[in-house]
């Protein structure tokens, strides 16, 4: 079924600058797979080859983060709106702790 997908600014150039696209699918995973199939420039940025959600991406159905639902297996309906946003994180030190306080 068709589901509205809101794209973050970083992915819009891969979709001809569109802010919102409509994709078919019955689950989050199916919708995202269809998205990457239609816009191959997004490959590796949303889901990886095994269909796992990219670590640095957050996906929401309406107001809910799908990681707290059933992840990519979360069912979607045509009344749902799927949003993709980058995960925003960082910090003052790298993993190796090269800049001790």
């Amino acid at each position: 079924m068709p589901v509205k997908v809101n794209l973050p600014t970083v992915l819009r150039p891969h979709a001809g600058g569109e802010r919102t696209v409509v994709m078919d699918g019955a689950t989050v995973g199916e919708v995202l797979t269809a998205l990457v199939a239609q816009y191959p420039g997004m490959a590796g940025q949303v889901i990886d080859d095994s269909g796992t959600l990219h670590k640095f991406v957050n996906v929401y159905i309406n107001d809910d983060d799908v990681r707290y639902l059933s992840g990519i297996d979360t069912p979607v309906s045509s009344s749902d709106e799927l949003s993709i946003l980058p995960a925003v994180a960082g910090g003052a030190v790298d993993a190796g702790g090269l800049h001790p306080r």
Binding site: P8, T9, V10, F56, P86, A87, V88, A89, G90, G91, A92, V93, D94, A95, L98, H99, R101
Partner: peptide
């Protein structure tokens, strides 16, 4: 995005760079 560095200078750390999500930001 903005964030604080509590005890270091105002310069992006390797972690900040590795996880910078959007070149337009």
């Amino acid at each position: 995005v903005f964030h604080s560095h509590t005890h270091t200078e105002a310069y992006p750390s390797p972690t900040d760079v590795a996880q910078a999500p959007d070149p337009a930001w």
